[in-house]
Design a protein around this nucleic acid. Sequence first.
DNA 1: TATGAGATCAACT
DNA 2: GTTGATCTCATAC
Length: 191
Amino acid sequence: MANPPRLRREFFDRSVHAVAPDLIGVTFLFGGVGGTIVEVEAYHHTDPAAHSYGGQTARNAVMFGPPGYAYVYRSYGIHWCVNFVCERAGSASAVLIRALAPTRGLAAMRRRRGVREERLLCSGPGRLTEALGIAAAHNGLPLDRAPFALYAREYAPKIAVGVRIGISKATEQPWRYGLARSPFLSKPFKT
DNA sequence: TATGAGATCAACT
DNA sequence: GTTGATCTCATAC
């Protein structure tokens, strides 16, 4: 069965609030391993919760570059989290990938994660980077070239919207998007 | 089901 | 010195 078309780099050349819901249902592979995006969050440089809010630093420099690149950072000193940079160079906006429904490379994901349950492989930003093998070395890589591969969705999914998770600033902004009722969400959406 | 501690690092006060 | 865009395990109800 043929893969659907890859996402073009221009896909990311739009408002982060337009790109984020459009990523739900997209297939995200890294080194041939991954699945369907079911949960994301949008961050913009005018947003106090964003890493880019206080200006450019060594850590967040990729966010200030052109769209269509991966921003990878260390979270809580333990985990890696991956973002897709959006809009245009300097806008410093990105979409945090929070959860996947695993479809490809299940054995590799189970080996890296050390768990068997499919639900626990990619249901959280730290979990999915561990499952896919994403780390600091991949910060700043383009999303339209290997080892990244993004494939357009083939249907319009039912999008759930809610407040973001794990932040303490701008907590009221409804910038978390997900596939409604997916069992692979890091947390369910209020209905 | 719910709450708490520990792991461990870069940015910031 | 404190705080996170987190996760896991332990303990308590």
